[in-house]
Design a protein around this nucleic acid. Sequence first.
DNA 1: TTGTACGCGTTATCAA
DNA 2: TTGATAACGCGTACAA
Lengths: 335, 335
Amino acid sequence: MASINDVAKKAGVAKSTVSKVLNGYRMVSDETREKVEKAAKELGYVPNSFAVSLSKKEFNRIGLIVDIRHNRQFVDEIGMQYLTGAFERSKVYQMETVTFFTSQFDDMSADQVIAYLKSQQINGLIIYNLSIENQNFYQIVKEQFFFCVLVDSAITNQKTSSVSIDHEAAQYDVAKQTLAENFYIQKILYIAGGKGGYITNLRLKGIRKLQKEMGFRLTIAYGDFDEYTARNIIFEYAKNIDIIICASDLMAIGAVNALKEMDIFRPVCGFDGIALMGYTKILMNTVKQDFKEKSMKAFDEMKRLLEGKHGRHLEIPYEICKIDYMDIIKKYSRQ
Amino acid sequence: MASINDVAKKAGVAKSTVSKVLNGYRMVSDETREKVEKAAKELGYVPNSFAVSLSKKEFNRIGLIVDIRHNRQFVDEIGMQYLTGAFERSKVYQMETVTFFTSQFDDMSADQVIAYLKSQQINGLIIYNLSIENQNFYQIVKEQFFFCVLVDSAITNQKTSSVSIDHEAAQYDVAKQTLAENFYIQKILYIAGGKGGYITNLRLKGIRKLQKEMGFRLTIAYGDFDEYTARNIIFEYAKNIDIIICASDLMAIGAVNALKEMDIFRPVCGFDGIALMGYTKILMNTVKQDFKEKSMKAFDEMKRLLEGKHGRHLEIPYEICKIDYMDIIKKYSRQ
DNA sequence: TTGTACGCGTTATCAA
DNA sequence: TTGATAACGCGTACAA
């Protein structure tokens, strides 16, 4: 790899001059500029970004933390959209990005994680779907070791922003709509996420608010965002229930499939609007979010934090709809 | 951020001594070792990886190139598994990894891509599912600008290895098995991938080999690995066909759904073994690969190349099976 | 066993 | 307008 010294030698100038030319300083004669540019081109010179960072004392790298431990299909699809959104923005802002899956940190303490990230010169973290069990990152966020943007969690502090939809309102809306489409509803089964989880509690608040308004009987079970668990919950409760509201599409899919096996019908609604829903061929209400858009917003917010602004909460829109198979395959078709 | 100088000052030793202690040199007295370790700990010292690289002249970063332009669901699921596999290995080998989606490079020339990657100090590329249309990366691989490992393509040269299953044999096997399960098969429709694609041609070879052996009538259509396209192909051809062999699960899913709409039954088989298949509730033969395992093998191979070994082709095993919904949700359940 | 001095590739300052 | 030189943080011969 040709270095700036090689270019300088070839062009017959000092390396500081090369640096000036290549960084667009204006106080250079056209003659030397041409000499330098020619030499650089011929040598295929590309500046060493490590040396640039070192010299400029700028080490701005953003870590993308994707929680990949569970919710396989769910996370697959959403995670990929998160990444594409972030990558797109990182290119625009010329900020370097490093991707991590939380599973990489499973056997580390918080201190070790911090040391590891710092050694990689990371000073900003975008954390997607931080789950309550992830003690390490909760601590990292709280103690403000890095600038953080949380997607779908909602801690904010001086160095931390959060980006998410209004989970409470969304859960309220999707449930209400589903109820409106069905008559004689008395008993509702709500399959929540993980017990004690932040998002889980917000969504629970939404369903409770609706309960207060409409006065149905509410049974709550925790499905842990897990399809298989939701399935078993259905087997246990569904017979004496009129309708099932799920805190995620994946659990809703598990629920519908269990109902089919029981050979009974109950209306079900989900949450997230994942494409997988289309493949089940079941048209049910769900809360659709634009994950890529959300991720781009998160990146914008990171930039703001890096510029010294104070952390804040950002809300993004959602939509109640049904996911249709044909829409999905057409949307992603190459035709 | 504390630097090595700060540690040295605090410990009252020279920075070279600090370096020696922290890098495990043995020729240090216990006394100074303790002093240094204490100081480092108190300051929360973490070496600057940029400076380390610069000093050691080691810039080993591996770029992971994921082709994300199309095959949405397909790529979602598989891409994520590729990434987890690579990340796992990168941690073991202590090699830094940078993730790219090909869409980031869409508006760049090959030279620009090379310059960009080089400026990021990348000298190894693991390229997943390089499609024939991706001229840039084909050129990059061929002209050997970086050490490359191709997953599911098969160029090899001095600096390039490839890792894949035996596509020809796999296509042959899955088709043969599917035929064996059905009688009176005369006319076969083969929905291939992209015209002229490397993998597409290999799989075509497999089906043609079977045709020679068994003597059925073979119709070939190009589905472009696209579900929607496969669907339309079915509408056009399926009536006069006994069985449908697809070069990907996604196309197979599109095919089955189209058949259902036509209200006719035809045996179908797929290729890849993706989890999505389970959600369609259609039990069909497919070629199952372990994508994570494949990605780890690719990383191992990259390490080999970096050590100066010659590029080569690596074959990994596959399995003919049916993807069952219950297996899938149990496998990924947290219970 | 410890410290000095240099080099890695770059930018920035200041003198020429 | 250009060039020498000092940083940036670290590793490492080599000298002490």
